[in-house]
Design a binder for these strands. Structure first.
Length: 829
DNA sequence: CGTACATCTGTTTTT
DNA sequence: CAGATGTACG
């Protein structure tokens, strides 16, 4: 386990309200920025476009940065340049990234250039920045400053309760589809009221949805909680409702830089807009009167001009449309921000030309995009390696074997990565990698903070930090078991409801409910525990003579008092052992947190925990192969990349087929995967894949044929169906045997694809001749067969029927295997 | 109220 | 196949 990276490990800067920034520092003012041509080492090694991206000054700058074009370097040097020339103080810079990891990396790199001079910048994610602002301005936003942050699981639990209480499941409402719908609305900055105004209220579905949405909103309010989407939306609402508050931040952040701009949704766009608006003369004067220093910022009209905005993005890498990301933010940027300067970075410093040519060819199939061609001066490099496996396991074996070969040749494990479309694909990969003794780690996946026991422990902390959070309270009510069942829970809830008090208050008054003495005692004991914990945080309390308790002391106190940890330790369930260890890991993390953030408290810890992302816990120092989804791979790079499961139904994924723009987004995902590779790229697919218990026949992805043939060296090709331009394509393509059909649906010949390359007979024969012709082959127990790889064997049993007949074969030398008769490379003897 | 078992789901990507 | 949910019983 790694320690999560602090979203904002820079020393907490004080609120702009409290510390007016002094604007007349050395070098600030006319003459400092422009003038004589001082050549800073910041520009060393940059190409002319990159240099311009660092040096350009103006209201708005759009950097279209292709994959691997050195955008992080450009962004960090741009920040460093602003600071070094004293055009800006660190506190005037707000840099927004997509993940905490990217934020941490950027801060480190700026710090490497400037040292202490970098302290005080805000470099964080959209979500972290908004939480920081909202906690400061909580009362204005109608929240407590200790508001909870609900993750999608919390949202679903809340919705589930609402749906149940409304019997809305009969109308087809599920927590999943409702949360997706609400999220989509919030991304568009809609709330219940604005939605209800335009809703068709004669439709009972619609009425019900509005009711669910309304209750969800009020429950979150009552719990002083915000969901992920609220973090952005509420900040925008805050700025719009309180121009004076907005003015403080507009005055403060003079330079706004946004990374991965193609992934911003409408709410995030609105936030950027709000932050970069000018401050009117009237407001500026008010601020001046309130003692906020703004004189140096004001222009001739007396207003404070809007902050300068730099965005970096690449619409070809937009892979979050499903989550509301809108590439119009980038394509219409020039119109939104007049006077924009556009700089294109096309030279790639990461990958070989072969890899880039493949990437260009693939992404070229998306229409409505700005033409952009990545190129490299680094030479062609090795060919891309292709491999068609019989099964997911076979594919995993190929990956494991090739990893071994690369490792033998001197490549470190940490320089290799395996990508896949869905998390479910890890199973087969992990099985084989463990057997092959390849050290690996799954990045993302089941996240540490999503484990039930960790959520339990955190719920104790949340209950102390935010006592009105009913969700957290109800989670710990009977964890560990105290004999407080659902019936009692409901009674407490209705008691609270009836008396207009919080759930927490109801717990304190448990004696008034007329419950059994045991249950009442249990509730009161928990209630007392939480009260005592809260006292420990209060500096004025006699319970904390040595000052308020820190997070780890508090957590330890709660774990001891609740016997949560002890209960797991004493359990005879072997799984509880691991759970106890996880909780101890959490305690260790709180200690790390105390050490690294001595001035931060409970709420800061909880915030950090709520906002860690999958890619954040990536530990670069570990000498292991990284396994991750294509989505988490964005922004990363490896010497060798294995892109697995390049099949129809998986990439593009089945679910995306119906969505407008789905296949195009999946293509970008494939493109992102390809462009992560520096030296070696492996594309693999499986002809059959075990899914939901049984085996399905898969077809090669349509994207594969978009890559020019001569770039791929097929160790084992998908067969004649894929031997484009092969000698006998027509007859073979006509065959409907699971593979031929997939490539029949070509919608056009990609440009630059050689019309008739030499057929790759050696593999074409092998695969097509032996693999695909088994349609009519019947096997029975007792038959002897010969397998291309496994040799001779005896059929023990045949199961399944039709296309899914499976032979259970005992091979003489290779052991027992199950083979899909239709496509296995076998012959009857 | 808690446990054990049976049944029935649903399966994309994530701040 | 596995996780979640529902049911029956102690």
């Amino acid at each position: 386990m790694t320690t999560p990276i602090a979203p904002d490990s820079a020393p907490a800067t004080t609120a702009p309200t409290a510390t007016p920034v002094i604007m007349d520092g050395p070098g600030f003012g006319p003459g400092a920025a422009g003038g004589e041509r001082y050549r800073s080492p910041l520009l060393d090694g940059l190409n002319p476009q990159q240099r311009e991206a660092v040096e350009y000054r103006g209201p708005a700058l759009l950097i279209i940065a292709g994959a691997g074009s050195g955008k992080t370097s450009v962004l960090t040097r741009r920040i460093a340049s602003l600071l070094e020339t004293r055009e800006a103080w660190p506190s005037q810079i707000l840099a927004i990234t997509f993940t905490n990891k990217a934020a941490a990396e950027m801060r480190d790199r700026v710090r490497a250039i400037l040292g202490q001079g970098a302290d005080g910048m805000w470099i964080s994610t959209f979500h972290s920045s908004c939480v920081r602002i909202l906690r400061r301005e909580a009362e204005k936003a109608g929240l407590t400053s200790t508001f909870s942050i609900y993750d999608s699981a919390d949202t679903k639990v809340t919705l589930k309760r609402i749906i149940k209480s409304l019997d809305a499941d009969t109308l087809g409402f599920t927590p999943g589809n409702v949360s997706a719908r609400i999220s989509k609305l919030k991304n568009e900055l809609a709330d219940v009221d604005s939605y209800a105004r335009n809703a068709n209220m004669s439709d009972p579905q619609e009425v019900m949805f509005v009711e669910i949405f309304r209750q969800y909103t009020s429950r979150l309010r009552a719990a002083s909680a915000l969901d992920f989407d609220d973090l952005i939306g509420e900040t925008v609402y805050l700025f719009r409702a309180f121009p004076a508050v907005a003015a403080l931040y507009r005055r403060r952040f003079r330079h706004l830089l946004v990374d991965e701009y193609q992934d911003t949704n409408h709410a995030q766009y609105a936030l950027v807009r709000e932050l970069t608006r000018p401050v009117s003369r009237e407001l500026a004067e008010e601020m001046e009167a309130d003692g906020v220093h703004v004189r140096n910022l004001r222009d001739a009209t007396g207003a404070i001009p809007g902050a300068s905005l730099t965005v970096v993005g690449d619409s070809d890498q937009s892979i979050y449309a499903f989550r509301g990301a809108d590439t119009r933010n980038i394509s219409e940027f020039e119109r939104d921000f007049p006077g924009t300067k556009v700089i294109l970075l096309e030279q790639n410093y990461r990958s070989t030309q072969n890899i880039l040519s493949a990437a260009n060819a693939v992404i070229g199939h998306n229409f409505d995009r700005k033409e952009k061609k990545l190129w490299s001066a680094g030479g062609d490099g090795e060919k891309i390696v292709g491999y068609t496996a019989y099964s997911g396991h076979d594919e995993a074996q190929f990956v494991a074997d090739e990893i071994a070969v690369l490792h033998q040749a001197g490549m470190a494990y940490r320089d290799m990565a395996v990508f896949y479309r869905t998390n479910a694909q890890t199973r087969a990969l992990e099985e084989i990698l463990v057997r092959a003794a390849v050290p690996y780690r799954v990045v993302g996946g089941t996240k540490f903070y999503e484990r039930a026991e960790i959520k339990d422990a955190l719920a104790y902390l949340i209950s102390v930090a935010n006592p009105v959070d009913e969700l957290a309270l109800r989670r710990i009510l009977n964890t560990p078991k105290r004999g407080i069942g659902p019936a009692t829970e409901t009674q407490l809830a209705s008691f609270a409801e009836a008396n207009q008090i919080t759930f927490r208050q109801a717990m304190r008054n448990a004696g008034a409910l007329g419950l059994g003495p045991k249950v009442t005692g249990a509730i009161l004991a928990l209630s007392t525990l939480l009260d005592e914990a809260a006292l420990k945080l209060d500096p004025a309390s006699p319970a904390s003579p040595a000052g308020p308790a820190n997070v780890s002391e508090l957590l330890t106190f709660l774990l001891d008092g609740s016997t949560l940890l002890a209960g797991l330790r004493n359990s005879r369930d072997p799984q509880d052992e691991a759970r106890a260890e996880n909780i101890e890991e959490l305690v260790a993390q709180t200690k790390d947190f105390n050490r690294e953030n001595p001035d931060s408290g409970l709420v800061d810890f909880l915030t950090q925990v709520s906002l860690v992302a999958a890619a954040d816990d990536l530990d670069d120092a570990s000498g292991t192969v990284s396994l991750m989804t294509l989505h988490t791979a964005k922004g990363l790079e490896y010497e060798a990349v294995f892109l697995t499961g390049v099949e129809e139904g998986l990439l593009p994924h089945q679910m995306s087929a119906g969505e407008p723009g789905g296949p195009a987004e999946e293509r970008r995902l494939f493109y992102v995967g390809i462009t992560r590779a520096r030296q070696r790229l492996y594309l693999s697919l499986a002809m059959t894949r075990a899914q939901f218990g049984d085996i399905n026949v898969a077809m090669p992805s349509r994207y594969l044929q978009e890559i020019p043939v001569d770039l791929i060296d097929w160790k084992q090709s998908p067969g004649m169906a894929n031997s484009r331009g092969g000698t006998q394509p027509r007859a073979l393509n006509a065959r409907r045997d699971g593979f031929g059909g997939g490539f029949g649906k070509r919608d056009g010949t990609p440009p630059g694809l050689p019309p008739a390359p030499k057929p790759k007979t050696e593999w074409a024969n092998r695969v097509t001749g032996t693999v695909r012709d088994n349609g009519d082959l019947t096997l029975a127990a007792g038959d002897r067969i010969r397998h291309v790889d496994f040799g001779d064997g005896r059929v023990n049993q045949v199961t399944g029927d039709g296309a899914k007949r499976i032979a259970h074969v005992q091979f003489d030398t290779a052991g027992a295997k199950k083979l899909l008769i239709k496509i296995a490379p076998i012959e009857k003897l």
